[in-house]
């Protein structure tokens, strides 16, 4: 059963009673909250994900609730708790779903060390796994959203999880878009359905584009890394595509990794295998159409 198959009141009592389990790829989350706003956003953004409302095993217990009893009623805000601990400062109640996404990224980055974790979006076309690896502000999420809306499979908009057999572990979740990117995607795809906007966060306005239903349905199928793209959006730039040597690619990925040093020798070997298996390219672009066509051509030629 998917989350959308339960009634609002079933979900509501499960969320308040700590009985909701949400399966995101191979991760099982226990999600609890007393905030109706958060519950609504969750039902919208995670409608197509397998879920249960009767408890059971889980990997991470996440609670998004006010930091104190009074804040449930007065100057309402919310904290992200993992196993009862709150690693971040509280945010206003309308930002709770954005806080959940950040908190979940932090949770995986801090506790899923069976994978090499890189800061990268992951998409797939014709069984060719593509890493879109870049720092924040390079347009990585916008590009991932565009590709996902053009029929590519989305595996992740933020974290590349690579297991010891060098497979990409899917964890398709809502794509978090910031500020102008929201308008760019809305203009290009007027029918795209966004979650509630979180305005005036420390990163500006955030809106979440739910992962395509077809990607969520394939959230247990791993992919094989074939291409690494370092995308860079620059206003008015002429499209530029340059190969990146494997050593250079490894150094750039290490720089963006969550747990590379922790994995020690294993991390080094997995990284070396990755840049061996996947060709790396740097792509500077100003037009999303050009960028998509270029990457699709790369997939045809090198994937």
């Amino acid at each position: 059963m998917n989350l959308e198959n339960f009634t609002a009141s079933e979900v509501s009592s499960a969320v308040q009673g700590g009985e909701l389990r949400l399966h995101i790829g191979r991760f099982i989350l226990k999600i609890s909250s007393v905030l109706p706003e958060f519950e609504r956003a969750l039902r919208q953004l995670y409608a197509h994900y397998p879920a249960s409302v009767t408890g059971g095993a889980y990997d991470y217990d996440i609670d998004v609730s006010p930091p104190s009893f009074f804040r449930r009623w007065v100057r309402r805000n919310s904290s992200f708790h993992l196993s009862g601990e709150a690693p971040f400062l509280p945010m206003e109640v309308g930002h709770a779903h954005a806080l959940f996404e950040w908190g979940l990224n932090w949770t995986l980055g801090s506790y899923a060390h069976n994978f090499l974790i890189l800061h990268s979006a992951v998409v797939e076309l014709h069984e060719c796994g593509v890493l879109l690896a870049a720092s924040s502000g390079s347009g990585k999420s916008t590009l991932a959203a565009e590709l996902a809306l053009q029929g590519w499979r989305l595996l992740s908009d933020e974290l590349a999880l690579i297991d010891r057999d060098l497979r990409l572990i899917p964890c398709a979740r809502p794509i978090s878009l910031k500020n102008q990117s929201i308008e760019v995607i809305r203009t290009r795809h007027p029918t795209a359905d966004f979650g509630p906007f979180a305005r005036d966060t420390h990163k500006g306005t955030i809106a979440h584009l739910p992962a395509p239903k077809s990607s969520v349905a394939r959230n247990r199928e791993t992919a094989v890394p074939r291409l690494i793209i370092f995308p860079k959006w620059t206003a008015d730039a002429v499209l530029r595509l340059e190969p990146v040597g494997s050593g250079q690619a490894a150094l750039r990925l290490i720089d963006q990794s969550f747990n590379y040093p922790l994995l020690g020798r294993q991390g080094f070997e997995r990284m070396a295998d990755l840049v061996d298996a996947a060709e790396a390219w740097e792509l500077e672009y100003s037009s999303l159409d050009d960028a998509r066509k270029t990457i699709e051509q790369l997939v045809r030629e090198h994937g």
Binding site: H113, N114, L262, G264
Partner: peptide
């Protein structure tokens, strides 16, 4: 995952 963390 926890053993990777402990070893690291």
């Amino acid at each position: 995952s926890a053993s990777v963390y402990s070893n690291g």
